[in-house]
Each structure stands twice: as C-alpha cells, then as structure tokens.
Design a protein around this nucleic acid. Structure first.
Lengths: 341, 341
DNA sequence: TCGTCCCGCTAAACCGGTTTGCTAAACCGG
DNA sequence: CCGGTTTAGCAAACCGGTTTAGCGGGACGA
C-alpha cells in the first residue's frame, strides 16, 4: 500500500474503497501504528489545540480557584469541538518565547494587560487571540465583566453599613511594570471602589490599597502586612475570593471576629464561597461562562478563518450578600464619625 | 543566508560566527519571523511538552479543587524544566484517540485505573507514562499515596467517636465499567474503611456505599440520594473534600448540624478545607507533591531516555482533625448500642 | 467497438524546519 | 612557503505525514 492510501484511510476514508480502508485500519491496529501527530499537524496546518495564555506561572495561577473554574469553562467549550488544551506560561521568563513555541490554532489570553512588556510581540505573532480580563483591543475578540460596577456595589455595601476605614487588597501584576495599565482588571476594580467612596463624599487613601498574589496565602500576607503598617480597617475589599478567605484567616488568627470586628467582601464568587466560615459576601462573576464564551469566539475565528469581525462581550457582575459583612463595631462608628468629615 | 544558517542562529548559535548569529536574529526580529513550532518539533523529535491525561472530561475534573492543586504541582515541575503542559481528555469519547493526537514527550496519567477499556491501547502507544492514583504497573513509574491507611484512620476516628451507622460517599469511575478495578483509588479507600470496621467487629454494608462525581454538587446529590433511600447515618466518610463539603451543605439544608447531628470526614485536605464551616476533618495527602514527583520521574525517563528503571513512590497520608467530627447524638448512641452486634 | 467517464489508487511535491556531511577559506606551526 | 587543522557556512537528506495531480482499468453509453 502507498503512504497516500494509508493517509486516506485515516483522514478521508471515502476516497478509498470501503474494504480497502477497513483493511488498512486493521493492519495499522495490528501493527500498533498510528500517524505521527506532529507530522499530521505540519501537513494539515492545524493542531486542533487551543492555548490558554497566562502571564503568570501556572504553578501560581492554579492556586487560585478562580482559574480552575475558568479552565472548566474553557475545557467544556474546547472539548465539545474536539479541541485539546495547551497551557502557555512564561518560559525562562519570556511569555513571547513560550508563545512562539506553542503549537496551537488560537489562544485565549487571561489577564494579559497592555502594560505587559511582551504584549506587542505576542500580538504580532499572527495567532488568533481572544482576550479575557485583559486590555481590550478592537482587532481581537474580548470577554470582560463589569468590574467597575461590581466593585462599586461591593464598596457601596460596606459604606452603607457604616464602614469608613476600609482596606483594599488587590491582585498584583505578574511583573512589576513601570506603569500599571489603567484598563487592567485591578485598576478597573479599584476605580469602582473609588467611585463608591467618592459618591459618598469619602476618599480611599492610596495607603489603604495593598496588593499581593491572588491566593489564600497572598491574602494572609497582604492583611498582616497592612496590620503591621498600622492600618486598622473595619472593612476589607478583596479583589479575589481566595485573598478574602486568606484575609479572614489572618483576622481570625488575631482573635478578631467576622463580621463583628471586621467585614470582608470578596470578588469572583467561587464555588466554595458559600461554604467558608462565615459565608463570603462577594461579587459574583460568571467565571465558567467567560471561559466558554472566549473559546466560542476563538473557534469562530479559527474555524471560519476570521470572516466575522471580532466580538466584544461584557458580562454582568452582581453583589451576593452572605455572612461576612455587617455593621462596624460601635466604637469604630463613633471614632470615625468624629474624625471623618 | 541559507536555511541552515538561520536554523543554527536559533538553535546552536555557537556553530556560527557570533556576529552572523546576531545579525540573523536581528533580521528575524525585524521581519517578525520565528521558526514554525510544529516543524521544529518534527525535526527535533521532541515537543518540550508533557501531557496530563485524565480519563474524565476536563470540564468535570477541573471542578474538583484537588485537580487544581495537582496541576499546580505538575506545572511547577514542568515549568522549572522548560516544559509546557498539554491536557489530554477523551476526544469524541475515546481517550486513546485523544492520546494518539497529542504532541507530547511524555504523559502523567491521573486516575487511570486498569479497568479502563482503552488502557492497553494507551500503554502500547510507546509514549513514556507515569501513573498517578492509577493501577500501578512495573513497567511504568507510579506515584500513589497510602489510601488504605488514610481511609482506615478516617473510619477509625468515626468509630472511636461512637459512630456505628456510617455512609460512605465514593468517587464514581469515569465510565461504568464491568468490573471495578480492585486496585483503583476508590477500591483502596473503601478497603481502608472496611478494615477499620472489621477491626472493631463491625461491618459496613454495601448499601451504605454510594458514589458520584467528585464535586460539591456530586456530594450534595450523593447525600440526598442516600437520604431518599432511607439511610440515616450519623457519620459520613467522603472520598474527596469537595464531596464532603457538598454533603455538609445538603445536611445543613435539612436543618441538621455538623458535627452535632452528623459528622463528616473528607479526603484530600484541599487548601480550603480549614476554612469551610465547620473546618473539615479530613485525610491529608500531599497533592502538589504528587504532581511534582510525577513530572520529575517522567522527565527522568524522557530526558535520559529511560536509563533508570521505573520508580514507584508511595507517599504518606494522615488524618487531620478539625471541627466537622464529633460524637453522635445521644439517641443514636443508645439505639445503635442496642441493635448492633 | 470505441470513446468517455468515473473509480481506486499512487507518485511526487509539499509542509517548514533540523541535521549531517562537506567544502572553501582562514589559521597554524615548522 | 607549505601541509594540516580549524572555522564558517552551505547543499542535500531527512523528519513523517498530507495533498495534488494524474494514471490505469473497468463500466457505461452510443
């Protein structure tokens, strides 16, 4: 048999007599032969794989339950279309380097903001990209949520309860960049918090904003750090549930009660948020759906070779009230009422 | 310049005059050129990628926090060696089909037990494999934990507290197979539970063992199902923390208290286990380490082309006592004391 | 009976690089 | 000044398939 016939037997059996195709497959089975996947990719010029691009090391990003849920959505959509998943994270420090070695038909980038030093290089690669929680650009599809609105609702909630002294725990950028992208997720959420304070005639001092990695430990470290700096907030606005849970742990380790002494609001509404102690008040965002929509948009470009113009999706967020928030202690209410205009 | 020179400039710059190499790279940069990753793989006969093989759909497996932590370990070890990660899950229902399309240098299989219908085909593929939480075979490296011991400790704990009527919530196999592999994780843990009961002169009836998917929802469904079947246990042994947390939710929704009315023990000790309400008593296993060790073993084979004989690692488990377990209610203690042995 | 079409298969070009083997020029000591 | 060794770069084979163009032969219609 010729190579051609074998190839046909695997890829377009209809171009062969049915019995011949069957015979070839049987012999292949018997010989334990199957076409070399890399050679196939090269010839067909498609990999049937989509990439998930993360500016941070996978080993840190996987520690955030948010990412698990996001991957769940990505995987659901990819698997439904027969695509495999390839995770792309910085290789020897270079994200662009990792990208140029990745054998994928398209990429879903998560949290890739414009302040990333290699973003231009990555974009120029020519690989279709959908940006999630990233700085949106007209030429690439994008999926975002209403970060500003969600954050504002969270802050309004605390302010409405009477909190005046609030600590914000943000997500640190993957690498300390010169200028933080004003359109990144962290900036947008911060803006939402600030809007709520401004609307109440209050201000959120820069000293009350700390950042750290988006994990439980990151939350613990961030809160302890703030405490050591002398901050004594009655409310905490965390930009991720994992950090909120870490903050609660740190607070409790100081013998403080939640929400009696300090209220905590998270962001994400991960599956476990209702089950922690106390149940976490948080900003819900459709995490899985973000992954699904991103892959759907990506495959639309990849499979139909970019006929459609890029889509830009913004999904809603909403504040979910649970048990981790309440009015501040009486003494703080008085104190603050006196010192605050 | 010849193709050869360009290739050298990217792969072995030392075979070119330093300035020539530099010049080629500059021109490449300028032209936005970078070598085609697939063609590179084909020529070099290596992909610098390792695969993570899961018998279940990724979209379901990612909903288990255990998998996030495991991936964290895998990613840490892979990234340290410059390898990317490729997730392999059944494609159009066939795991072997997905496997034969995967462009990886080696594979870490998680939860691939011998009862899987395609296991033989996958093994024959010739790709180096390390088995984690799978049926161990001498020819492949393996990483396991002391499931039996951990499960036994969990059951002994409940029995010691006075529980006699215990519900076991197990992890269902990916596909309903004819015969459950007696060496699979679920079977091993069940054996551990049974050993403890036997040692106390008790038995664990088959009707008290239910299974479901390893997720919060799976735990909720499993517990509700058991309740509808008329079971009224005072203790629950769950084979995953996610299921334990789901079971606690379902119990609480029935106005039962934990551990007042029912005690719950999990398995895994995920990061969030100490933070749920009540803090979960569970069997700790070194999840991240399993991932790291598996990749380390795999790379030893992949990089040194299998000089070393396959390694077989069994890590320890230990019971962590937290707040979700306590003595059964008095009425049950009496009841059982009368009706049992 | 002959021309035409279609079917089943194949030879050869191609995918985009890497790697081997070699040549021509530069370098070296004697 | 010359033979022997490096050195720098190139041509061609190769990686393992896919894809295109085309060929021989049997069926069919005229």
């Amino acid at each position: 048999m010729s190579k051609t016939a074998v190839s046909f037997a695997f890829n377009s059996p209809d171009r062969l007599a049915p019995e011949t195709a069957m015979r070839i497959r049987e012999i292949a089975e018997q010989l334990g032969y199957s076409p070399h996947p890399v050679a196939r990719m090269l010839g067909q010029r498609q990999t049937l794989t989509i990439g998930v691009l993360t500016p941070q090391a996978l080993s840190v990003i996987f520690s955030n339950p948010f990412f698990g849920a996001f991957s769940e959505g990505v995987a659901a959509a990819a698997e439904a279309s027969g695509y495999a998943l390839h995770f792309i994270s910085p290789r020897h420090g270079s994200l662009a380097g990792a990208m140029s070695r990745a054998t994928v038909d398209g990429v879903v980038a998560i949290g890739l903001s414009d302040d990333h030093p290699e973003v231009e290089q990555i974009r120029r690669g020519g690989v279709p990209i959908v940006l999630v929680d990233s700085t949106a650009l007209p030429e690439h599809g994008s999926v975002q949520v209403d970060d500003v609105g969600g954050a504002r609702a969270a802050a309004e909630h605390l302010i409405g309860l009477g909190h005046r002294n609030v600590l914000v725990i943000g997500v640190e950028p993957p690498a300390p960049s010169v200028a933080m992208d004003p359109d990144g997720v962290t900036s947008r959420r911060l803006r939402g918090y600030r809007e709520a304070f401004a609307a109440a005639g209050l201000t959120l001092p820069d000293t009350s904003v700390v950042v750290g990695p988006a994990s439980i430990d990151g939350g613990i470290a961030a809160l302890n750090g703030a405490w050591e700096d002398g901050l004594r907030p009655t409310g905490v606005l965390a930009m991720s549930d994992a950090m909120a849970i870490g903050a609660m742990r740190a607070l409790r380790d100081m013998r403080l009660t939640i929400p009696g002494d300090v209220s905590v609001v998270g962001f994400d509404d991960i599956d476990l948020a209702p089950h922690v102690d106390p149940p976490l008040t948080t900003v819900h965002q459709p995490i899985r759906r973000k992954g699904e929509e991103a892959v759907r948009m990506l495959l639309a470009v990849v499979q139909r070779r970019g006929l459609a113009s890029p889509e830009h999706l913004r999904l809603e967020t909403r504040l979910i009230l649970r048990g981790s928030t309440g009015p501040p202690p009486l003494k703080d209410r008085r104190e603050v009422a006196g010192s605050d205009d």
